[in-house]
Design a protein around this nucleic acid. Structure first.
Lengths: 237, 237
DNA sequence: GAGTGGTCTAGACCACATA
DNA sequence: ATGTGGTCTAGACCACTCT
C-alpha cells in the first residue's frame, strides 16, 4: 500500500475516533512529515484525500481544520454498489433475484453507446427489500464479452464483489443520471408502490479502468425511500 | 494563476476543441513537462484535475486516454449556482424575486446547526421560469452577520456573483441532500405544478473557505424538469 | 518574525504495458 | 529494453495568518 494512503487511513481513523475533533487543527504538514517520517509532499497527498472526502478544510497560514463529519452521514455519492452501502450503513435488507438471463442489449442502449447490434448481455433484475417492502428495482445489463458467466448466487449477493474479486477486473468510473419518471406496469408489478405515480430513476454507465464499457444499470427507487447526499467543493466556473 | 491550473485549462480546451479526441492518448507526462517547460509533478497535478473532471482516464504503462465527454451531460454536481448553470448551458430563463426580507432563521435550521436562537438572515425566495413556467422554487437563508446587505438587484441576478465579487468572500464547500417530498400549499401557489403530488427537494448547507456557515438553501424542483448528472470514480469501500 | 499551507523542482526508483 | 505512469524525496521560494 502507498504511504500517503496509509497516512490518509490513519488520520481518517483518528478523526472518526474523535482524537481530532471538529474545529481542531491537525498537526502541521511539517510536523506530520516528521512524525510519519515521510516528505511533506507525501503528507500533502494524504491531506488531499481527507479534503476530498470532506474530513478537513485547509487554510493557508492557519492549518487543516477538522470538519464535522457526523452530519455527512450517507456518502451515497460516488460509485458504490447497493450491497456496499448496505454494509457500511448497517441496513438490513433483502435482495430478491427475479431474473438472470442472457439476451441482447436493448436497442436504445446499443444506439447510445455505439455498440455492435448483436451485443450480448446478462440481464439481471433484482428487488431490494427493506422491512419486507420492495422499494428499489435494479436492472443490470452486463456485457458477456467481459463477464462470461453470471452465477445466480453472485448476482444475489454482490455484483461488484464478484467482478472485482472473483474475476479480477478493475472498475474505473461511471456516469450517472438522476431523473424522476412516471411508473411503468413493471414497476407496479415488482415494487410495493402505494399510490405513487412516479419513481426516481438512476441510470449508470460503468466502465473498467481500461476504459472498456461493461455495465449499464437502471435503478428505480420508490420516492419516499430515496435520499442522496453529496459533499461538494466550490470550483469557480 | 498556478502553472498546473493553466496547463489544466489548456489541455481541457484542447480536448473540448477535439485536438485530442476520445480514445486518443495525451502526450506522455515527460513530453508535456518539456513542452510546457515545467517539472513532471506539475504536469501530474494538471492531469489530476482532468481526471477528476472526467476528461481523461490514466493507465499505468500506457498513458492518459481521452474520454468521451458528452457535453449535454452537464455536471450539475458540485457547488454551482443556478445562474452559473444557466450561463454555461445557455438556457434562457427568468428569475422572479418574490421575497427578500430580514427575519430570524427558522427553528429547525437553528437546531440542526447549533446556531444562536436569534440568528438573523436574509430570506430570499425566487421563482425560476423556463418557457414561462415556474419550475423551480428557491428559498435561501443568508446570515446577515456575514452578508450585511442584500440588494434586490443582486438577489435577482446572481447571489454567488455578489458574494464572491462584490463582498470578496470565498465560498468553500457544501453539503447537499436530495429527496422527493409531497408538495406544500406554497409550492402550489408559487410553482406551475400540473397534477404533481411531489417535488424534488435539494437542501444545501454552504460554508465559506474559513469554515463559517453562511447559507442554507432549499431548492424545490418540478419532477419533470429535474435532472442531475454525476461523474464518479471507483474507490474501493 | 515565526509558522502555516501553496507551489514547484530535479531527480530517483518502482510497476506496468508494449514491442 | 524502452517508455509509460505511480510514488517519494529534499529542498526551495512564495503567500498568508497571527503574535
Amino acid at each position: 500500500m502507498n504511504k500517503f494512503n496509509e497516512i490518509y487511513l490513519d488520520l481518517e481513523a483518528a478523526i472518526l475516533n474523535q482524537r481530532y475533533k471538529p474545529g481542531d487543527l491537525l498537526p502541521s504538514e511539517n510536523t506530520l512529515a516528521t512524525t510519519y517520517n515521510v516528505s511533506r509532499e507525501t503528507i500533502r497527498k494524504a491531506l488531499v484525500l481527507l479534503l476530498e472526502s470532506g474530513y478537513i478544510q485547509k487554510q493557508q497560514g492557519k492549518g487543516s481544520i477538522v470538519l464535522d463529519v457526523k452530519r455527512f452521514n450517507f456518502p451515497v455519492s460516488g460509485l458504490t454498489s447497493y450491497k456496499e452501502i448496505q454494509d457500511t450503513q448497517h441496513i438490513k435488507g433483502k435482495t430478491i433475484l427475479t431474473k438472470n438471463e442472457r439476451q441482447l442489449m436493448p436497442q436504445h442502449i446499443i444506439q447510445q453507446f455505439n455498440l455492435p447490434a448483436d451485443t450480448q448481455v446478462h440481464y439481471i433484475e433484482r428487488q431490494r427489500q427493506v422491512n419486507g417492502e420492495s422499494v428499489i428495482l435494479d436492472k443490470d445489463y452486463l456485457l458477456t464479452s467481459i463477464i462470461p458467466e453470471m452465477p445466480d448466487k453472485e448476482a444475489e449477493n454482490s455484483l461488484y464483489n464478484y467482478i472485482e474479486h472473483t474475476l479480477g477486473l478493475v472498475i474505473g468510473y461511471a456516469q450517472k443520471e438522476f431523473t424522476v419518471e412516471p411508473i411503468t406496469k413493471e414497476d407496479k408489478l415488482l415494487m410495493d408502490l402505494q399510490n405513487d405515480s412516479h419513481v426516481v430513476v438512476v441510470r449508470s454507465s460503468v466502465y473498467l479502468e481500461d476504459t472498456r464499457f461493461f455495465q449499464y444499470t437502471e435503478s428505480r427507487h420508490r420516492l419516499d425511500k430515496f435520499r442522496f447526499v453529496d459533499f461538494a467543493r466550490r470550483r469557480t466556473p
